[in-house]
């Protein structure tokens, strides 16, 4: 890609580092990715996340993570990384037969 590096940009001006925002909407619910914000540090990142992603409706909790700290799989991991789990059908609840009429939890 043909663009200036972050360091080169920050030499002249800064939009601050990027943070990923995870929010919990309901008690007991998992934190889900809501989007991202720019912020100079964790405290401002939390405030910005609150202002941007809680404009409508209450949130119970917010996590912010520097985007640079996230390690993700790549599409080339697709085969080796995820296929084995798919094979192991005994990990999926549908593998187990339940007598008709019995209600599971």
């Amino acid at each position: 890609m043909n663009h200036k590096t972050k360091a080169e940009n920050e030499a002249t001006d800064t939009q601050w580092p990027l943070w990923e925002v995870f929010v919990q909407e309901k008690q007991g619910a998992p934190h889900e990715h809501a989007g991202s914000v720019h912020a100079p540090d964790a405290e401002i990142a939390l405030q910005n996340a609150r202002d941007v992603y809680a404009r409508r409706g209450r949130l119970l909790s917010i996590w912010v993570v520097p985007s640079a700290a996230i390690t993700a799989t790549t599409p080339s991991d697709d085969g080796p990384f995820f296929d084995p789990g798919n094979d192991k059908i005994y990990r999926h609840p549908q593998f187990y037969k339940v007598p008709r009429g019995v209600k599971m939890f």
């Binding site: 939009q15 601050w16 720019h38 401002i44 910005n48 202002d51 404009r55």
Partner: peptide, 11 residues
């Protein structure tokens, strides 16, 4: 001064 702060000030 930055987009995030525009949103905060409006709030």
């Amino acid at each position: 001064p930055i987009l995030e702060e525009d949103i905060a000030l409006s709030n």
